[in-house]
Write a protein that binds this DNA or RNA. Structure first.
Lengths: 149, 149
DNA sequence: GGCTAATCATTGCCCGGCTAACGTTCTTTT
DNA sequence: AAAAGAACGTTAGCCGGGCAATGATTAGCC
Protein backbone atom coordinates (compact mmCIF):
# COMPACT_ATOMS: atom_id res chain seq x y z
CA UNK A 1 0.00 0.00 0.00
CA UNK A 2 3.00 2.18 -0.37
CA UNK A 3 2.08 2.89 -3.99
CA UNK A 4 -1.57 3.81 -4.33
CA UNK A 5 -1.27 4.90 -7.93
CA UNK A 6 2.38 5.79 -7.83
CA UNK A 7 2.91 4.40 -11.26
CA UNK A 8 0.72 6.94 -13.00
CA UNK A 9 2.31 9.80 -11.12
CA UNK A 10 5.83 8.69 -11.80
CA UNK A 11 5.03 7.90 -15.38
CA UNK A 12 3.48 11.25 -16.24
CA UNK A 13 6.29 12.98 -14.46
CA UNK A 14 8.87 11.09 -16.49
CA UNK A 15 7.07 11.73 -19.77
CA UNK A 16 6.98 15.47 -19.18
CA UNK A 17 10.66 15.64 -18.39
CA UNK A 18 11.74 13.41 -21.25
CA UNK A 19 9.51 15.23 -23.66
CA UNK A 20 10.99 18.58 -22.68
CA UNK A 21 14.51 17.33 -23.13
CA UNK A 22 13.81 15.73 -26.47
CA UNK A 23 12.20 18.92 -27.66
CA UNK A 24 15.16 21.02 -26.56
CA UNK A 25 17.54 18.65 -28.30
CA UNK A 26 15.62 18.66 -31.56
CA UNK A 27 15.31 22.41 -31.50
CA UNK A 28 19.06 22.76 -31.82
CA UNK A 29 18.78 21.14 -35.21
CA UNK A 30 15.93 23.39 -36.23
CA UNK A 31 13.39 20.65 -35.75
CA UNK A 32 10.30 20.53 -33.62
CA UNK A 33 9.36 17.60 -31.48
CA UNK A 34 7.52 15.04 -33.54
CA UNK A 35 8.98 16.09 -36.86
CA UNK A 36 11.71 13.77 -35.73
CA UNK A 37 9.42 10.82 -36.21
CA UNK A 38 8.36 11.84 -39.70
CA UNK A 39 11.96 12.41 -40.61
CA UNK A 40 13.03 8.98 -39.41
CA UNK A 41 10.10 7.25 -41.06
CA UNK A 42 10.73 8.90 -44.40
CA UNK A 43 14.45 8.27 -44.12
CA UNK A 44 13.74 4.58 -43.88
CA UNK A 45 11.39 4.72 -46.84
CA UNK A 46 10.85 7.87 -48.83
CA UNK A 47 7.74 8.81 -50.72
CA UNK A 48 5.20 7.50 -48.29
CA UNK A 49 1.69 8.84 -48.02
CA UNK A 50 0.29 10.71 -45.02
CA UNK A 51 -1.97 7.79 -44.28
CA UNK A 52 0.89 5.32 -44.25
CA UNK A 53 2.94 7.57 -42.02
CA UNK A 54 0.06 8.09 -39.65
CA UNK A 55 -0.40 4.34 -39.36
CA UNK A 56 3.22 3.57 -38.66
CA UNK A 57 3.62 6.49 -36.26
CA UNK A 58 0.38 5.76 -34.43
CA UNK A 59 -1.12 9.18 -34.99
CA UNK A 60 -4.05 10.41 -37.02
CA UNK A 61 -3.80 11.56 -40.59
CA UNK A 62 -4.60 15.22 -39.89
CA UNK A 63 -1.65 15.34 -37.55
CA UNK A 64 0.60 14.27 -40.39
CA UNK A 65 -0.84 16.65 -42.95
CA UNK A 66 -0.35 19.63 -40.67
CA UNK A 67 3.14 18.57 -39.80
CA UNK A 68 3.85 18.02 -43.47
CA UNK A 69 2.68 21.53 -44.21
CA UNK A 70 5.05 23.01 -41.64
CA UNK A 71 7.92 20.80 -42.69
CA UNK A 72 7.35 21.70 -46.31
CA UNK A 73 7.41 25.37 -45.35
CA UNK A 74 10.65 24.70 -43.50
CA UNK A 75 12.13 23.12 -46.61
CA UNK A 76 12.31 19.66 -45.13
CA UNK A 77 10.04 17.82 -47.52
CA UNK A 78 8.06 18.18 -50.71
CA UNK A 79 4.52 17.08 -51.49
CA UNK A 80 3.66 15.40 -54.76
CA UNK A 81 0.54 13.65 -55.84
CA UNK A 82 0.75 10.07 -56.98
CA UNK A 83 0.49 9.72 -60.75
CA UNK A 84 -1.51 6.54 -60.81
CA UNK A 85 -3.85 7.30 -57.93
CA UNK A 86 -4.54 10.97 -57.72
CA UNK A 87 -6.05 10.75 -54.27
CA UNK A 88 -2.70 9.87 -52.78
CA UNK A 89 -0.06 12.37 -51.78
CA UNK A 90 3.52 11.28 -51.43
CA UNK A 91 6.04 12.99 -49.18
CA UNK A 92 9.68 13.22 -50.15
CA UNK A 93 12.52 14.38 -47.97
CA UNK A 94 14.69 17.19 -49.25
CA UNK A 95 18.46 16.94 -49.19
CA UNK A 96 18.52 19.35 -46.27
CA UNK A 97 16.29 17.04 -44.29
CA UNK A 98 18.30 14.00 -45.17
CA UNK A 99 21.41 15.67 -43.85
CA UNK A 100 19.71 16.16 -40.53
CA UNK A 101 18.95 12.49 -40.07
CA UNK A 102 22.28 11.35 -38.77
CA UNK A 103 22.98 14.17 -36.29
CA UNK A 104 19.43 13.98 -35.03
CA UNK A 105 19.72 10.26 -34.56
CA UNK A 106 22.98 10.73 -32.75
CA UNK A 107 21.47 13.35 -30.49
CA UNK A 108 18.58 11.04 -29.77
CA UNK A 109 20.96 8.25 -28.88
CA UNK A 110 22.90 10.57 -26.60
CA UNK A 111 19.71 11.63 -24.84
CA UNK A 112 18.74 8.04 -24.32
CA UNK A 113 22.15 7.33 -22.87
CA UNK A 114 21.91 10.32 -20.53
CA UNK A 115 18.48 9.30 -19.35
CA UNK A 116 19.65 5.79 -18.60
CA UNK A 117 22.79 6.91 -16.81
CA UNK A 118 23.39 4.86 -13.72
CA UNK A 119 21.41 1.91 -14.99
CA UNK A 120 23.38 -1.16 -15.89
CA UNK A 121 22.52 -3.30 -18.87
CA UNK A 122 20.27 -5.50 -16.83
CA UNK A 123 18.27 -2.55 -15.53
CA UNK A 124 17.91 -1.12 -18.99
CA UNK A 125 16.71 -4.36 -20.45
CA UNK A 126 14.26 -4.72 -17.60
CA UNK A 127 12.95 -1.19 -18.00
CA UNK A 128 12.39 -1.64 -21.70
CA UNK A 129 10.74 -4.97 -21.11
CA UNK A 130 8.44 -3.53 -18.46
CA UNK A 131 7.50 -0.63 -20.68
CA UNK A 132 6.72 -3.03 -23.44
CA UNK A 133 4.46 -5.01 -21.19
CA UNK A 134 2.66 -1.85 -20.15
CA UNK A 135 2.20 -0.97 -23.80
CA UNK A 136 0.85 -4.41 -24.51
CA UNK A 137 -1.66 -4.06 -21.71
CA UNK A 138 -2.60 -0.64 -23.04
CA UNK A 139 -3.01 -2.00 -26.53
CA UNK A 140 -5.33 -4.69 -25.28
CA UNK A 141 -7.42 -2.13 -23.46
CA UNK A 142 -7.59 -0.05 -26.58
CA UNK A 143 -9.38 -2.63 -28.65
CA UNK A 144 -11.20 -4.55 -25.96
CA UNK A 145 -13.40 -2.08 -24.14
CA UNK A 146 -15.84 -1.07 -26.80
CA UNK A 147 -17.62 0.06 -23.70
CA UNK A 148 -20.59 -0.96 -21.72
CA UNK A 149 -22.22 2.40 -21.21
CA UNK B 1 23.60 -3.89 -29.50
CA UNK B 2 20.14 -5.29 -29.56
CA UNK B 3 18.77 -2.01 -28.28
CA UNK B 4 20.24 0.91 -30.22
CA UNK B 5 17.86 3.45 -28.78
CA UNK B 6 15.08 1.06 -27.96
CA UNK B 7 14.33 2.87 -24.80
CA UNK B 8 13.17 6.06 -26.49
CA UNK B 9 11.04 4.15 -28.93
CA UNK B 10 9.41 2.02 -26.32
CA UNK B 11 8.94 4.96 -24.03
CA UNK B 12 7.24 7.23 -26.54
CA UNK B 13 5.09 4.33 -27.63
CA UNK B 14 4.00 3.69 -24.07
CA UNK B 15 3.29 7.35 -23.38
CA UNK B 16 1.04 7.65 -26.39
CA UNK B 17 -0.98 4.61 -25.47
CA UNK B 18 -1.28 5.51 -21.81
CA UNK B 19 -2.20 9.06 -22.64
CA UNK B 20 -4.95 7.93 -24.96
CA UNK B 21 -6.41 5.61 -22.36
CA UNK B 22 -6.26 8.20 -19.60
CA UNK B 23 -7.98 10.70 -21.86
CA UNK B 24 -10.73 8.24 -22.74
CA UNK B 25 -11.26 7.46 -19.09
CA UNK B 26 -11.47 11.07 -18.04
CA UNK B 27 -13.81 11.88 -20.85
CA UNK B 28 -16.44 9.60 -19.38
CA UNK B 29 -16.57 11.92 -16.40
CA UNK B 30 -16.82 14.98 -18.59
CA UNK B 31 -13.22 15.93 -17.97
CA UNK B 32 -10.40 16.51 -20.38
CA UNK B 33 -6.95 15.12 -19.93
CA UNK B 34 -4.94 17.39 -17.68
CA UNK B 35 -7.90 18.91 -15.90
CA UNK B 36 -7.50 15.85 -13.78
CA UNK B 37 -4.30 17.27 -12.35
CA UNK B 38 -5.83 20.63 -11.54
CA UNK B 39 -8.75 18.90 -9.94
CA UNK B 40 -6.55 16.75 -7.73
CA UNK B 41 -4.30 19.61 -6.77
CA UNK B 42 -7.22 21.84 -5.79
CA UNK B 43 -8.89 18.98 -3.97
CA UNK B 44 -5.85 18.67 -1.76
CA UNK B 45 -5.77 22.40 -1.17
CA UNK B 46 -8.43 24.72 -2.47
CA UNK B 47 -7.99 28.35 -3.35
CA UNK B 48 -4.56 28.13 -4.86
CA UNK B 49 -3.26 30.57 -7.42
CA UNK B 50 -2.42 29.72 -11.04
CA UNK B 51 1.24 30.25 -10.31
CA UNK B 52 1.20 27.85 -7.39
CA UNK B 53 -0.63 25.24 -9.40
CA UNK B 54 1.75 25.62 -12.31
CA UNK B 55 4.70 25.10 -10.01
CA UNK B 56 3.32 22.00 -8.35
CA UNK B 57 2.13 20.50 -11.61
CA UNK B 58 5.34 21.26 -13.47
CA UNK B 59 3.57 23.29 -16.11
CA UNK B 60 3.73 26.92 -17.16
CA UNK B 61 1.33 29.49 -15.81
CA UNK B 62 -0.39 30.19 -19.14
CA UNK B 63 -1.29 26.53 -19.36
CA UNK B 64 -3.10 26.82 -16.05
CA UNK B 65 -4.91 30.03 -16.86
CA UNK B 66 -6.24 28.62 -20.08
CA UNK B 67 -7.30 25.42 -18.42
CA UNK B 68 -8.90 27.44 -15.65
CA UNK B 69 -10.89 29.36 -18.21
CA UNK B 70 -12.26 26.18 -19.74
CA UNK B 71 -12.92 24.58 -16.40
CA UNK B 72 -14.71 27.69 -15.21
CA UNK B 73 -16.83 27.59 -18.35
CA UNK B 74 -17.56 23.94 -17.58
CA UNK B 75 -18.67 24.87 -14.08
CA UNK B 76 -15.79 23.10 -12.39
CA UNK B 77 -14.18 26.05 -10.66
CA UNK B 78 -14.56 29.72 -9.91
CA UNK B 79 -12.03 32.49 -10.17
CA UNK B 80 -11.72 35.10 -7.46
CA UNK B 81 -9.09 37.71 -6.90
CA UNK B 82 -7.26 37.77 -3.62
CA UNK B 83 -8.44 40.55 -1.33
CA UNK B 84 -5.10 41.47 0.12
CA UNK B 85 -3.04 41.10 -3.02
CA UNK B 86 -5.04 42.04 -6.04
CA UNK B 87 -2.56 40.59 -8.47
CA UNK B 88 -3.32 37.11 -7.27
CA UNK B 89 -6.18 35.01 -8.54
CA UNK B 90 -7.45 32.15 -6.46
CA UNK B 91 -9.18 29.13 -7.93
CA UNK B 92 -11.92 27.36 -6.02
CA UNK B 93 -13.53 24.07 -6.92
CA UNK B 94 -17.27 23.97 -7.31
CA UNK B 95 -19.34 21.31 -5.60
CA UNK B 96 -19.82 19.61 -8.93
CA UNK B 97 -16.08 19.33 -9.36
CA UNK B 98 -15.58 18.06 -5.86
CA UNK B 99 -18.02 15.29 -6.51
CA UNK B 100 -15.96 14.17 -9.44
CA UNK B 101 -12.82 13.75 -7.40
CA UNK B 102 -13.49 10.35 -5.99
CA UNK B 103 -14.78 8.60 -9.12
CA UNK B 104 -12.01 10.10 -11.16
CA UNK B 105 -9.45 8.93 -8.67
CA UNK B 106 -10.97 5.48 -8.70
CA UNK B 107 -10.93 5.38 -12.47
CA UNK B 108 -7.31 6.43 -12.43
CA UNK B 109 -6.46 3.70 -9.99
CA UNK B 110 -8.26 1.16 -12.15
CA UNK B 111 -6.36 2.26 -15.21
CA UNK B 112 -3.10 1.95 -13.35
CA UNK B 113 -4.06 -1.54 -12.30
CA UNK B 114 -4.99 -2.51 -15.84
CA UNK B 115 -1.73 -1.18 -17.21
CA UNK B 116 0.27 -3.12 -14.67
CA UNK B 117 -1.65 -6.35 -15.19
CA UNK B 118 0.65 -9.31 -15.25
CA UNK B 119 3.36 -7.57 -13.28
CA UNK B 120 3.91 -8.83 -9.77
CA UNK B 121 4.68 -6.51 -6.90
CA UNK B 122 8.37 -6.80 -7.45
CA UNK B 123 8.09 -5.84 -11.11
CA UNK B 124 5.89 -2.88 -10.26
CA UNK B 125 8.24 -1.60 -7.65
CA UNK B 126 11.11 -2.01 -10.04
CA UNK B 127 9.32 -0.20 -12.84
CA UNK B 128 8.45 2.73 -10.64
CA UNK B 129 11.96 2.86 -9.30
CA UNK B 130 13.46 2.80 -12.78
CA UNK B 131 11.12 5.52 -13.96
CA UNK B 132 12.09 7.59 -10.97
CA UNK B 133 15.74 7.21 -11.80
CA UNK B 134 15.08 8.26 -15.38
CA UNK B 135 13.25 11.30 -14.09
CA UNK B 136 16.13 12.13 -11.82
CA UNK B 137 18.54 11.93 -14.69
CA UNK B 138 16.23 14.11 -16.74
CA UNK B 139 15.95 16.63 -13.94
CA UNK B 140 19.69 16.86 -13.71
CA UNK B 141 19.96 17.46 -17.43
CA UNK B 142 17.34 20.14 -17.18
CA UNK B 143 19.32 22.37 -14.90
CA UNK B 144 22.83 21.41 -15.85
CA UNK B 145 23.18 22.10 -19.54
CA UNK B 146 22.91 25.86 -19.65
CA UNK B 147 24.51 25.15 -22.98
CA UNK B 148 27.89 25.53 -24.46
CA UNK B 149 26.93 26.79 -27.86
C1' DG C 1 5.18 60.23 -0.97
C1' DG C 2 6.66 59.03 -5.54
C1' DC C 3 9.24 56.55 -8.92
C1' DT C 4 11.27 52.30 -10.11
C1' DA C 5 11.47 47.10 -9.51
C1' DA C 6 9.58 42.93 -9.19
C1' DT C 7 5.49 39.90 -9.30
C1' DC C 8 1.23 37.96 -11.17
C1' DA C 9 -2.14 36.76 -14.47
C1' DT C 10 -3.55 37.15 -19.04
C1' DT C 11 -3.21 37.20 -24.08
C1' DG C 12 -1.28 35.87 -28.57
C1' DC C 13 1.02 32.68 -31.37
C1' DC C 14 3.30 28.17 -32.25
C1' DC C 15 3.44 22.84 -32.22
C1' DG C 16 1.30 18.29 -31.70
C1' DG C 17 -2.62 15.52 -30.75
C1' DC C 18 -7.62 14.45 -31.43
C1' DT C 19 -12.57 14.22 -33.88
C1' DA C 20 -15.74 15.62 -37.24
C1' DA C 21 -17.02 17.48 -41.58
C1' DC C 22 -15.77 18.21 -46.42
C1' DG C 23 -14.23 17.64 -51.29
C1' DT C 24 -11.73 14.64 -54.62
C1' DT C 25 -10.83 10.81 -56.75
C1' DC C 26 -11.05 6.03 -57.63
C1' DT C 27 -14.07 1.45 -57.32
C1' DT C 28 -18.18 -1.07 -57.49
C1' DT C 29 -22.48 -1.95 -58.57
C1' DT C 30 -26.14 -1.90 -61.25
C1' DA D 1 -22.14 4.08 -68.87
C1' DA D 2 -23.95 6.04 -64.81
C1' DA D 3 -24.83 6.14 -60.08
C1' DA D 4 -23.64 4.70 -55.53
C1' DG D 5 -19.91 3.66 -52.42
C1' DA D 6 -15.27 3.63 -50.45
C1' DA D 7 -10.76 5.60 -49.79
C1' DC D 8 -7.78 9.74 -49.18
C1' DG D 9 -6.19 14.09 -47.92
C1' DT D 10 -7.35 18.55 -46.24
C1' DT D 11 -9.70 21.91 -43.33
C1' DA D 12 -11.82 23.56 -39.10
C1' DG D 13 -12.10 23.54 -34.29
C1' DC D 14 -10.87 21.84 -29.67
C1' DC D 15 -7.41 20.66 -25.75
C1' DG D 16 -2.87 20.78 -23.68
C1' DG D 17 1.88 22.16 -23.85
C1' DG D 18 5.46 25.83 -24.68
C1' DC D 19 7.49 30.94 -25.05
C1' DA D 20 7.21 35.97 -25.37
C1' DA D 21 5.00 40.13 -24.60
C1' DT D 22 1.31 43.00 -22.06
C1' DG D 23 -0.98 44.91 -18.29
C1' DA D 24 -2.14 45.38 -13.75
C1' DT D 25 -0.67 45.59 -8.95
C1' DT D 26 2.36 45.47 -5.16
C1' DA D 27 6.95 46.14 -2.96
C1' DG D 28 11.18 48.83 -2.39
C1' DC D 29 14.10 52.49 -2.63
C1' DC D 30 15.07 56.88 -2.77
Amino acid sequence: MTLPSGFMDEFTRATKLVRALADAGLRKHGLHLGQNLVLAALAREDGRTPGELAATLNVTTPTITKMATRMAAAGLLTRRRDDRDNRLVRLWLTDAARELCQPVEEQRRALSESLLAGLDDEDRARLIDLLRRVSENAGRLHDGPVDHE
